[in-house]
Simulated assay, not measured.
Amino acid sequence: MFELIFPGWLAGVLLSLTTGPLGSFIVWRRMSSFGDTLSHSSLLGIALSIAFNVNSFYAILILMSFIAIILAWLEELLPVSLDTVLNIISHSSLSLGMVFISLISSKKEINITNYLFGDLLSVTKNDLITISISSILILSILLFRWHSILSSTINEELSQIDGINVLYARLTIMLMTAFTIAIAIKFVGALLITSLLIIPPATAQHFSGSPEKMVIIAIIVSILSVTGGISLSVFYNTPASPSIVLCSSFLCLISNIKKHFY
């Protein structure tokens, strides 16, 4: 039993190391709609990878990176919120991906459930190596760019005065988020990855007094969610990824109750 669940648990822990800090920036910048847009767009990337018989990781990464660059450029130009544009792109991409997959499935059998909800317990040793290398790369970039990204998140005007390229900082977050989703989509699923990016930081903000502390607590909450969700999946035979999200939501609920009464 341990040999079966350990690779999935370790993959979840490694992903938590990146979703914690990235999710914190998404919460601070109020970009949850952006995360939804990328995760829903990933289904279109999956459909294209099946249609053209290419690796789904590269198809998803290229498509979402393209969308992230366009959105970063639009956010720089538009004087209003991007929420409307994000919702249009999100639902259009999801619908287009579903249509493509339905057309392709007439020629080959495709299990859409795996793409929507993932399968964390199907992680292999090669998957762990890929996730480890990717997590180290993302964390290294975030640490190297931490000051500029954090400054531009807190106050864009002061950051520009200090000579920080706000567009570059915003694009870094968007591309790293796209990279993380491209890695995690196979294991967590298109409909659930945003929850892992948003819920742990939303929980952590009730216990943190600094950005760094919030990131650390978000990582801890995410690891607890992964551990609890996989345990629930093993003992009660429930789907792993939805169980993880439910555990994360439960911890968020507890944190809100604690904030209200204490």
Rank of each mutant, 00 (worst) to 15 (best):
F261Y: 09
V27A: 11
G45C: 10
S122Q: 12
L74Q: 06
S195C: 04
L14V: 08
L246F: 13
S93T: 04
I181W: 00
I60A: 10
N237R: 08
A68Q: 02
S93E: 13
S92E: 14
K259G: 11
L175Y: 08
M176T: 09
K186P: 04
I136P: 11
I244T: 06
L192Q: 07
T84E: 03
S195F: 05
H147W: 01
S132D: 15
L196W: 02
S151A: 02
S208G: 08
L137F: 14
F144L: 12
V123L: 11
G8L: 05
Y236K: 03
I104E: 14
S241M: 06
L14Q: 13
L197Y: 01
F52H: 03
S233N: 08
G20M: 08
F144R: 05
H206G: 12
L116Y: 11
I70G: 00
R30M: 10
V221E: 12
T18C: 07
A169T: 02
R145P: 11
A47T: 12
L82R: 01
L192G: 06
N256C: 00
I60V: 13
I101F: 10
S102M: 10
I104Q: 11
T130W: 06
S210D: 04
L14H: 11
S195G: 12
P239D: 14
T19M: 15
F100H: 05
T84A: 08
